[in-house]
């Protein structure tokens, strides 16, 4: 399949597809980070994670409308406020859901899966009733449009770079929260030994709620970033949920580095194969490879060594 292209063309193809893969990678990382926090640290399967992401996207959409209506002068900066709002709204809803639903189910992980699936159906229907079934697009501020020409054959879209910067920034923020803050220490303590953590005075219930809230909040920010590269519909979140779960499981739950590494390999494989095969076959092959590797190495790429 490579024979039809010259070396220079191949290089350009790989660079362009690789870059498209990097954007996909950023979305995966943003979605998977929240999921890895919730699933890796708490062992809860949140099937409504995609809907929390879409919540962030709708918040961004509303903010952009608000700005263009009342403060057109500041429109170019609306995105930063939207991101913060998305984090707060999605995080608050996440904490509410944890209080109302998840905390009753910690001993039954398979049941959280079903319950959060139900939650995702409800959220989808609410989006459909409020925002309509049609997809909505966000007006991208002026400075994010266009692309940077690197060479005559390779061009890089600016919104892609922005999303990547965002993903890197949030990854670093999550890393600091998990490994450098006292909250992160508490979360990791609860993960490793819940009873003992409680015994030394950590409020495990509050830690759980906060963890779930922050996981959902990160999903909200992911949704915000998502509006830069795609349009938002009520069911858009569901499209990504299985991929994201595979990313988290493939990377080894509870390992942030693993999550990032697996998001990178999955997105790159898919994006580069997409050019040579049809999109659906590329996806099938990628998913098959991931499932195959998971069958050989169920603990994922980077497993946390835990005594159970």
């Amino acid at each position: 399949m490579f024979a039809d292209y010259s070396m220079g063309e191949l290089g350009a193809i790989f660079a362009m597809q690789g870059f498209a893969g990097l954007i996909l990678f950023s979305v995966f990382v943003l979605m998977a980070l929240g999921l890895a926090i919730i699933f890796g640290q708490m062992g809860v399967i949140n099937m409504a994670h995609g809907e929390f992401m879409i919540l962030g996207a709708y918040v961004t959409y509303l903010t952009s409308n608000l700005f263009s209506e009342y403060m057109p002068a500041l429109f170019s900066m609306y995105f930063f406020l939207a991101m913060i709002l998305a984090f707060i709204v999605a995080g608050a809803l996440g904490m509410f859901v944890e209080w109302a639903l998840i905390r009753h189910l910690y001993k039954r992980p398979l049941d959280t899966l079903l319950a959060t699936w139900g939650l995702s159906l409800i959220m989808q229907q609410i989006y459909r009733s409020v925002f309509g079934a049609r997809e909505v697009g966000v007006t991208i501020p002026e400075w994010m449009m266009g692309s940077l020409p690197l060479t005559d054959t390779i061009e890089i879209p600016i919104n892609g770079i922005f999303v990547m910067v965002l993903a890197t920034g949030i990854s670093i923020a999550v890393y600091i929260m998990m490994f450098r803050s006292s909250w992160g220490k508490q979360v990791r303590a609860v993960t490793q030994n819940r009873v003992m953590a409680g015994a030394v005075g950590i409020n495990t219930e509050r830690t759980d709620r906060l963890t779930f809230g922050i996981g959902c909040g990160v999903a909200g920010v992911a949704g915000s970033a998502f509006t830069m590269i795609g349009s938002t519909g009520p069911t858009a979140g569901q499209l990504y949920i299985v991929d994201t779960f595979l990313v988290v499981v493939f990377g080894g739950a509870a390992s942030l580095l693993g999550t990032i590494a697996s998001a990178f390999s999955i997105s790159q494989a898919q994006s580069i194969m997409e050019f040579f095969l049809s999109g659906s076959m590329a996806k099938v092959l990628t998913l098959l490879t991931v499932v195959g590797i998971l069958m050989l190495r169920p603990q994922g790429l980077f497993a946390l060594k835990l005594r159970k």
């Binding site: 062992g43 399967i45 992980p109 398979l110 899966l113 299985v242 779960f245 595979l246 499981v249 049809s278 659906s280 076959m281 996806k283 099938v284 998913l287 098959l288 991931v290 499932v291 998971l294 069958m295 169920p298």
Partner: peptide, 23 residues
């Protein structure tokens, strides 16, 4: 492999088969 992991992987298999059939 059991529990939650099995559930996720079977779900991925369902996704793969659907994409394959449609493709």
């Amino acid at each position: 492999v059991g529990g939650v992991y099995f559930a996720i992987i079977t779900q991925a298999i369902a996704a793969i088969l659907t994409i394959l059939i449609i493709g």
